[in-house]
Design a protein around this nucleic acid. Structure first.
Lengths: 230, 230
DNA sequence: CGCGAAATTGACGACCATCAATTATGGTGG
DNA sequence: CCACCATAATTGATGGTCGTCAATTTCGCG
């Protein structure tokens, strides 16, 4: 049940019942994955279209110099991959950091996909692209505090849009090392930056949840503008 | 005439004549733009599908802190935008740094696009996404020399794939300030880094052309792996 | 030849990396 | 329920990469 995708799409426009019906049919096959599973690795053949139904994860790229970069997070409702519609081979690994479920489109249906569903897939890929470009700007032009704050602004909005945020907090099963690999700093510097954000009263943590103590302040620190998430 | 696109697509697989015919028909309407034109700005409505036929440019995002980030370059054969198929509004500005031509798809044909052309557009958007993710890794994990080198590796390969490279050099109408805004350094540091690459015998310039003096060395410095460009 | 833009240089300082501990946390078995 | 262990978080000291500021030189074009 692609409820999260439907919820997010309906944050802007109401969907016709027929469309919802098609979506539910398209993503009716669901698979389970346990925490720390990798549905695919960089270089694997891209076989299916896949959509995250529940859980959490990130996309990860391994560099020749031995370092790795997290290039994006996936939350329920996100297109995990457009499969062979995008490229024959995956350019990154997908890691699910908690037990998750995702839907895959049966291969035979790929060839006969309704045009309007094909267009939806294009829009979903384009949204990933928009997010990626925001990350480029984040990595290239923001200093530590703003850069880290921006990551949490983004995730906060994305979680809220799918109804996964509980008040001002949301599930965040990610280590500081993984935050570091996302924003391009060392774990030591990320630790100090998170402490600064806590001192600012903008951000806090409770176990595996992130708490946006003051969203307005956090967005001000980050220079965050949510338009890229539409 | 989308010759560059066809050339690039044929670096991996031969295209059927019928496909080429469809592409030429799809992108038959061409427009001219002068140097330093901005076909669109961030926030503008996305009206057309557009493909660069000739020229050169970059995509640019403006940040709240007054800085800007170049989030990608466009060369002939690149999809400039999937228009309303991607998003109703542009999330970045497009700047053409030299006189260019680009093809646009007439609006009425958007609704009746052949499925296989729709799939091609999805693939082209996905390629932009793959390149964006490589940029994220570049900005997040590589130090100055490798990061700058990587940019030139990418452009060198992309120019070669479309037959725009003349031996080991290619047109590069970009200032050091723009390189700086691409890799997230200051112009001063970019200048020193370029000098280092020149001393290494890896890279040189001649007016508005970049000269890859030693591609193997440049890729070694960058830790470049061209697979993401397929 | 003259002008503005672009490239280059030097000195200095800040931000972030590195190295190396120590402390906290949370999951597990006794 | 607590002891135990591995993982994660935190801290301090020091150094290097890159930013900032300000000036000068070179280049491109009319």
């Amino acid at each position: 049940m692609p409820a999260a995708l439907i919820a997010r799409l309906e944050t802007s426009d109401r969907l016709a019942d027929a469309v919802k019906h098609h979506l539910r049919h398209m993503f009716r096959n669901s698979r389970a994955a346990s925490a720390n599973a990798d549905p695919w690795r960089e270089g694997d053949k891209a076989t299916h279209v896949a959509l995250l139904l529940s859980g959490f994860g990130y996309r990860c790229r391994q560099l020749a110099n031995g370092r790795r970069q997290i290039v994006g997070y996936v939350v329920p409702g996100d297109l995990l991959t457009a499969g062979p519609l995008a490229a024959p081979v995956h350019d990154h690994s997908l890691r699910l950091t908690e037990a998750s479920t995702y839907a895959t489109l049966p291969d035979p249906e790929l060839a006969t996909l309704e045009p309007f569903l094909l267009r939806l897939l294009t829009r979903l890929v384009a949204r990933e692209l928009s997010i990626s470009r925001e990350w480029i700007a984040n990595l290239g032009q923001r200093e530590a505090r703003a850069r880290v704050a921006h990551l949490f602004c983004e995730l906060s909005v994305r979680m809220r849009d799918i109804g996964q945020a509980d008040g001002s907090s949301f599930p965040f099963p990610v280590t500081q090392q993984e935050i570091a690999d996302s924003v391009g700093f060392t774990i030591v510097h990320v630790n100090r930056t998170l402490q600064a954000l806590r001192r600012d009263g903008a951000l806090a943590f409770d176990g595996r949840r992130a708490i946006v103590a003051d969203f307005v302040r956090l967005t001000a620190i980050a220079g965050f503008d949510a338009r890229y998430l539409d």
